[in-house]
């Protein structure tokens, strides 16, 4: 991490607070921070992407741009269409209409494996570690352009042995960074939930992606691992990668995101700097409902987790 990071004291009874404050990237957008605002250097541009399931419009994004070289968080209440948008952008689902470009190249109708080859790699909300492959094999699977993956060349080991050794060294290096090197010969099924998240992220990095899309990287990860995951995500940025992630943990979003895109009911309702966007009335409406400050005779103690989380954040900001 950066040398001028400032240590920050951890408050008691709070989710694990990082020991270093990450350096935020600013000046990403042009003009006012409104939904669909233009970015100085967008890597991903989405236009009119719509996906309906029967009568339900899951995603209806008019225009959104993801800034390059920054960490962008995609947040929103449950059912806002975040994961569906992820699936559409990575070719795992087909939209009813719309177009989107990655690095200036159109991705509409491009199958998932080609999207991945272009350098836009994703992870899944429900971790997809390949259980009955070893951790090392999981990693090697992530490497791009392997000669030995051709059926006929696979039969001639001299053609791919050197490449395999290089990939193995690279995988070992990544595994060491993610503290999984001692597990390299174990089946991935024997890893804990958090370790599988780490493995999935490390595996995604084997292909040297330009855009890493993480779907709820923190879900189900124990607090001890959260810190290390956060550091890994911040490292991606310092290595020049762009990160787009879906997350529910507001503390984490505020801590590492440079830019926040808020979705609700399939639409982008707000965008902006993580500290400002939390105060945006549209965001509060999205999470709490439009009449959250009117007394409609509801028991005030019956607050949901989201409500208390948002209120806590708003209090923190003041």
């Amino acid at each position: 991490m950066s040398a001028n990071a400032v240590p920050q004291a951890a408050a008691p009874l709070e989710p694990p607070v990082p020991t270093k404050k990450p350096v935020k990237t600013t000046g990403l957008h042009i003009g006012e921070a409104a939904p669909g605002c233009a970015k100085v250097d967008p890597i991903l541009v989405v236009d009119n992407v719509r996906r309906t399931f029967g009568g339900l419009t899951a995603v209806d994004v008019a225009h959104v741009e993801v800034p390059r070289g920054a960490i962008t968080a995609l947040i929103g209440p449950n059912g806002a269409g975040k994961t569906t948008l992820f699936n559409l952008l990575t070719g795992f689902d087909k939209p009813d209409g719309g177009k989107w470009t990655f690095d200036g190249r159109s991705l509409a109708g491009v199958p998932a494996y080609k999207v991945a080859r272009m350098g836009q790699i994703r992870t899944f909300q429900l971790t997809k570690a390949l259980g009955l492959l070893t951790v090392m094999d999981n990693m090697l699977l992530g490497a791009k352009g392997q000669t030995g993956e051709n059926m006929f060349r696979a039969l001639m080991p001299f053609l791919w042995r050197n490449q395999e050794e290089e990939n193995r060294a690279k995988a070992l290096d990544l595994l060491t960074r993610f503290k999984l090197d001692t597990k390299k010969n174990d089946y991935a099924a024997s890893l804990s939930g958090g370790q599988r998240k780490l493995l999935e992220m490390a595996r995604a990095l084997m292909s040297d992606p330009t855009l890493v899309m993480l779907d709820e990287p923190m879900a189900g990860v124990n607090p001890a691992l959260t810190q290390s995951l956060l550091d890994h995500i911040l490292n991606l940025k310092s290595q020049g990668m762009t990160v787009l992630f879906v997350e529910h943990d507001m503390h984490m979003v505020r801590h590492i995101a440079d830019w926040v895109i808020v979705m609700a009911e399939g639409k982008v309702v707000a965008e902006g700097d993580p500290h400002e966007v939390m105060q945006n009335p549209a965001v509060i409406d999205a999470y709490l409902g439009q009449h959250h400050d009117e007394d409609i005779g509801v028991d005030p103690d019956a607050e949901t987790e989201h409500v208390s989380a948002i209120k806590e954040l708003l209090d923190d900001e003041r």
Binding site: F92, Y113, G131, L132, D137, N138, L140, G148, M151, L155
Partner: peptide, 30 residues
């Protein structure tokens, strides 16, 4: 032949597909 091809990178992709084909697709394999 089967032994050789299953210990090659091709076999690794094949076994990965057995475990979870979406994960393998997400890593850029057809």
């Amino acid at each position: 032949l089967v032994w050789q091809i299953m210990r090659s990178p091709w076999g690794r992709v094949i076994k990965g597909i057995r475990e979870d084909e979406d994960a393998v697709r997400a890593l850029g394999k057809n």
